[in-house]
């Protein structure tokens, strides 16, 4: 992490898999990674909201990324992980399948979204990186959190 100023075009990303797809989140946006426990459902909430939980005295809103990204719902027995992010003083947890390593990627190598990307994904994607084995989609955290509550209700 200390080397992040080596090249201003390099960004560090926390990787996560959701329904088999690899995603990257800018490391500066990631507060922590945790196992969500004692999640409280929120009745009448938009379907993307998985619930709320208490993290060291703060109330964290969990977002089910599978639903958010329009992917297949998770089989109930797989334990999920959550990536903690913050926006405007509020804490959110992005529910993912598994968290991976931290990658350093050249931002210049990032490519635009393919035009045939599903609208759910296109809405939150900040671009695609071609890695050796697979593709990595960079998530725009603010757009992920921009859930239109009114439309969902």
């Amino acid at each position: 992490m200390r080397n992040k100023t080596d090249n201003i075009n390099t960004g560090e990303y926390v990787t996560a898999t959701i329904d088999g797809q690899l995603f990257g989140l800018p490391i500066l946006r990631v507060q922590d990674v945790f196992m969500p426990e004692r999640v409280t459902r929120v009745p009448l909430a938009p379907p993307e909201i998985a619930g709320v939980l208490n993290m060291r005295g703060r109330i964290v809103t969990l977002i089910d990324m599978r639903r958010r990204l329009g992917l297949r719902p998770r089989e109930s027995d797989t334990a999920a992980m959550a990536i903690g992010v913050e926006t405007r003083g509020e804490s959110y947890g992005l529910l993912i399948d598994a968290v991976g390593e931290v990658l350093k990627l050249d931002d210049n190598a990032r490519e635009q979204n393919p035009v045939n990307l599903s609208p759910e994904l296109a809405r939150v994607s900040a671009g695609i990186h071609r890695l050796e084995e697979q593709l990595l989609m960079v998530l725009d955290v603010d757009r992920v959190l921009d859930i239109d509550a009114r439309a969902a209700a």
Partner: peptide, 18 residues
């Protein structure tokens, strides 16, 4: 504690608490 801004449209709740 105030509801998360993503949940504030739910008129049934005024907030949440631990």
């Amino acid at each position: 504690k105030p509801m998360s801004s993503r949940l504030r449209h739910i008129t049934m709740f005024s907030g949440n608490t631990i």
